[in-house]
Amino acid sequence: MKKLAAMLMLATALVAPGVAVARDVTIEAQMVRYSGHAAYLAVYLTDPSGAYRSTLWVSGHKTKYYGTLRGWVRGVSQAGSISLDGISGASVGGGQTLTVHADLADALIDAGYTIHVDTAVENGGEFADDAVIEVTSNSASVDGSGYIDKLSISM
């Protein structure tokens, strides 16, 4: 199994300026084994009301496929524009694991915020909210409903 690790540097209000009030959160998306093209993924955060707050990671370089990550696209378009500089990487093949590190402010933890992952594969399926997990201080994991086998969070 190949590990895809990515360091995330979010220059948004979500990231606390001091180390003391932010936590390093590790999100791991374990993909199911499937044949076909590598999957596009969007990992993003929503607030307790379900509104989109921020993008943590996008896998896949061809922007023409971004439209297939429906939930994420809807969130982004309502929030306005987005820069993907530094928070995008290669698409993820079957059986691989995507690991995303994010510095999240303490205020977001155990406060009803959730992490959503949308997935889509060229000539394959499209899964908005393939897996959704709440941001908690305890490690947790949930099963995916599409290309994600298991989504877990730890800090």
Partner: peptide, 10 residues
């Protein structure tokens, strides 16, 4: 030949 992607308007 890729279509240019833009986020949908609200």
């Amino acid at each position: 030949s890729d279509s240019a992607f833009s986020f949908p308007p609200a």
